[in-house]
Design a protein around this nucleic acid. Structure first.
Lengths: 219, 219
DNA sequence: TGCTTTGTTAAACGTGTATTTGAATTTCCA
DNA sequence: TGGAAATTCAAATACACGTTTAACAAAGCA
């Protein structure tokens, strides 16, 4: 990335990475400044010096993680703009699943915890950064569902897809939270699950689409 | 339910309902004994007298809520045992969505928070109570997917369905967490969303099923 | 070099909250 | 009714954790 000249910037960067990891693991409330500073090899007062307070660190850590992960896994999934809408949607889904599953990705885990227990701290920045992504997904869904699809059908299909992505996150976290226990689901093969979500969702979308055109020919 | 004779049992019951509501709203960590006792019109020491500690109250409150909600919304969704596997699966999905959406249901919200931030307190009881439900769902899925479906396909389809149910929970909580903001999704019509999940999922399942039988006739 | 700014450190402070305590009160039952 | 058991109560205790402070060190710059 950008090279860090001063010592302070190094400490600041270490705090950000440690914070995003720990916030993702424990959530805002359960994460302690002491532990973050320990992992970042910084003094207990470093957070307040560099960020003012815990809330600001939380915000900056999420932004830091989110931008980094978008760079690692571009949202189009490497699918060409010329490809069909279904192919581009498939690319987007796979990219998102990669971001969710990546062990070095924390922004989804933080979002997940934030949704479960809203601190209201991330609300603004989260909406601002995520809305563009959501709008692109909506555009693709509109293409796949056809002109006659209602706004509600669009939202429902979006919910179905996002729900599956977050489910992967939940299963992943459950899995690593208890090493010994009998696993409810084996999510080790991320690629296979991504393919499943694509197949499952495209079939679902086609079914919804065929409901809108009452009884015409469906090629 | 069972009639409560002594005053203590009444207090105990009030604590349980207040606790399940507040744990569902705030999660284990953010819920304070003080607030629970206040809502239950009990003294601050009542929790420790009746349950020993906060952890035990948490456990009992979840069990209390879960059993009550299973009674309110039977898992078969009112569909006859003689109905087709797809119909019975549809009933199960709709019942679960009703349980998720019900404003007086707290066990799903607690599970959701527990999964986002495992306290490990619920792990045992949760697995014990939920496993039967999961197994029944697996049985129905096995029927719908056909004999040739792999264990992995089964788990993936289960994840797809559960993910959609939890997504409803997330959207519902986001919605009531911020009254003024532009809504990302309108989930006010629960019945319509339940129908969507059923249609979407059955189409997905049929698609997965048709993959297993390479090229046979699909009636 | 000497001065200022920036960054680090250990210790102290204050608040929030689970838990404990012992006395006061109510309920139960012979 | 009277005494024992159960329950409620206000206050005290203990502890975890975010934040502040003031002294100290390093870096930047004239």
């Amino acid at each position: 990335m950008t090279d860090l000249k001063t010592k302070s910037e190094k400490t600041r960067a270490r705090l950000l990475t440690a914070a995003s990891r720990i916030f993702a693991e424990k959530g805002y409330q359960d994460a302690t400044i002491a532990e973050i500073c320990e992992q970042a090899q910084a003094n207990i007062a470093a957070v307040n010096y560099h960020f003012g307070d815990k809330q600001t660190l939380y915000l900056e850590a999420w932004r830091h993680a989110f931008n980094h992960e978008l760079g690692q896994h571009p949202p189009d999934g490497g699918v060409s703009r010329q490809a069909s809408a279904e192919q581009r949607l498939a690319g987007r889904i796979k990219s998102m699943i990669r971001r969710v599953a990546d062990d070095d990705s924390y922004s989804f885990a933080i979002i997940h915890k934030e949704m479960a227990q809203p601190t209201r701290l991330l609300a603004d920045i989260l909406e601002k950064e995520i809305n563009p992504q959501r709008q692109q997904m909506f555009g693709l869904l509109r293409e796949c569902l056809g002109q006659d699809a209602s706004e509600q059908q669009l939202q429902y299909c979006h919910a179905s897809i996002m729900g599956q992505c977050f489910q992967l996150l939940r299963l992943k976290q459950m899995q690593q939270a208890r090493p010994q226990r009998a696993l409810p689901s084996d999510m080790s093969d991320i690629g296979a699950f991504a393919e499943h979500v694509v197949d499952f969702s495209l079939a679902g979308i086609r079914a919804i689409r065929s409901q809108t055109l009452p009884k015409r020919i469906q090629a």
